[in-house]
Design a binder for these strands. Structure first.
Lengths: 220, 220
DNA sequence: GTGATCTGGCACCGTTCGGTGTCAGTTTGT
DNA sequence: ACAAACTGACACCGAACGGTGCCAGATCAC
C-alpha cells in the first residue's frame, strides 16, 4: 500500500534529456507531489481527480500510476511534504530563541503562524483535507500529531518538574497545547478580517506560558 | 440550498397508518438523519452513498430527495443533530456545577468527555468527517466552533477581568481552550489503550484553570 | 367494495472517474 | 542512419453512483 515501486527497479535504462531513469522518475514524482499540494491546498482533496493532478503537473495519468497506487497515496505524500516543512520551520523558529525557554516558545509560535499565513495551502492540507479520508490517512494524521506533541515535550522538557507530574499527564497536556495552537490558527486563517499575526501569537503564548507556569517547581 | 421543502407543502393529503402527510414526512426525515449519524459515524462520510443511507433508514432513494438536496445537505443535518446534543449535554454538565466556577468547568468537561466516550460516532462526525467536505460544510463547522467558543466565554465570563484584556484576546484564548479540549478528546478516542476518563478530564482541567488563573484580577 | 392515494422496490439512464492499452513521434546509443 | 527506448496524448472500458421514473400492491376515504 502507499507508494509503489517503479516497474523498472534497476538503472539499466537509457539516459534521456541528460538524466538517468531513476532521476527522471524521481523528478516526475516530485512534480506530482507539488501539483497535489497545489490542487489539494486550493480546491480540496474531495473534488480533486487524478486527471486534474496530472494536468497541473504537466504529466499524464500513466506517470501517476508509475509512482502512486492511487489518490490516497498521493495525499499521504503531499501531507508528509507539507508537515515536514512545517515542522522544520517550527523547530528552526524555536532554535532562534536561543537558550531562554520563553524566547524559544515565542520563536516557535512565530514561525508556525508565519508559515500558515504565508501559504494557506499548508493549513488546508494539514488541518482540513486529511481528516475523514480513510483509516490509512487517519493513522498518518495521528502519527504526525503525536510527533508535534513530542516536539512540544522536548522544547518544554527542561522547564517541567518531572517528579511532580506523571508522564501521561504531561503528554495529555502537550496534546492540549498543540490543539490550542492548531485551533487558533485554523480560526485565524478562516476569519474574514483576521487579527494581526502578533496578536494571535500573543494569545497563543499566553496559553502556553500559563500552563508552563503550572508545571515548573511550585513555590509553596 | 440545503434542506428542500416537500413537494406537497399543504396538509391536503390522506392520513396513512394513523399519521398525516406532514407527520409522515417528518418521521422519514428523522429516520434519515439517524441513519446518517450511524453511517457517517461508523463508516465515514466519504465512503457513504445515498443508497447506503436509505437502506439503513429502511427507506428508498425517492424519500431521500423528498427531504434533502443531496448528501451534503444530509451531512449538515446530521452534524447539527450531533453538535446540538453535545452542546446541550455540556451546558447541562456546567449547570450541575452550581455557582462555583471551578465546579462548573469540571462539570462541563465531564459531560463532554462522557458524551464522546459513550458514543464514538459523535466525535467522528463532529471532529473528523465534516472537515474538508466543501465550503458549505466548512462554514457550518466554523459557526459551530464559534458557538462553542461563545459558550466558553459565557461560562468563564464572571471570572475574567474584562478591563485588563481586550475582547479579541479573550476570544482567541477561548478558541485555544476549545481546541485544547477537542484535541485531547480526539487523541483520547483514537488511542489504542486510552487513559481513564478521570485522567483526561484532570489534564483538560489543568489547562483551563491555568489560563483562567491568568485572566482574573492579578494580585500583584 | 371501489377508486384514489400512498408506499416501497426496482429498473434505468447519464455522468464521472479510475485505470489500462495503444500509437505516433521524439530522443538516444551505436 | 537506424533501431531501441522513451515520451506524451488519446481512446477506451468498466464500475460506481446520483438522480428519475415506473409499477404492483397496500392503505385509506367514501
Amino acid at each position: 500500500m502507499g507508494v509503489v515501486s517503479s516497474p523498472r527497479l534497476d538503472d539499466t535504462g537509457r539516459t534521456y534529456r541528460g538524466a538517468g531513469p531513476r532521476q527522471r522518475q524521481e523528478e516526475r514524482r516530485v512534480r506530482l507531489v507539488d501539483a497535489a499540494v497545489e490542487v489539494f491546498g486550493t480546491s480540496g482533496y474531495r473534488s480533486a481527480t487524478v486527471e486534474k493532478i496530472c494536468s497541473t503537473a504537466g504529466l499524464t495519468k500513466r506517470y501517476f500510476y508509475e509512482s502512486f497506487d492511487g489518490s490516497e497515496a498521493l495525499l499521504l505524500a503531499a501531507y508528509a511534504s507539507v508537515t515536514d516543512r512545517l515542522r522544520d520551520s517550527v523547530l528552526r523558529g524555536a532554535g532562534d530563541g536561543g537558550a531562554d525557554l520563553d524566547a524559544r516558545v515565542r520563536g516557535a509560535l512565530t514561525a508556525f503562524f508565519r508559515s500558515v499565513a504565508d501559504d494557506p495551502r499548508i493549513p488546508r492540507i494539514a488541518f482540513q483535507e486529511v481528516l475523514g479520508v480513510g483509516p490509512e490517512v487517519d493513522n498518518a494524521y495521528r502519527r504526525v500529531t503525536l510527533s508535534f506533541v513530542d516536539a512540544v515535550l522536548v522544547v518544554i522538557g527542561p522547564a517541567v518538574d518531572r517528579t511532580a507530574f506523571p508522564d501521561f499527564h504531561l503528554r495529555t497536556l502537550a496534546t492540549g497545547l498543540v490543539g490550542a495552537v492548531l485551533m487558533i490558527a485554523q480560526q485565524w486563517v478562516l476569519s474574514e478580517n483576521p487579527q494581526p499575526i502578533e496578536s494571535v501569537i500573543g494569545s497563543a503564548h499566553t496559553i502556553l506560558s500559563a500552563v508552563l507556569g503550572q508545571l515548573g517547581p511550585q513555590p509553596m
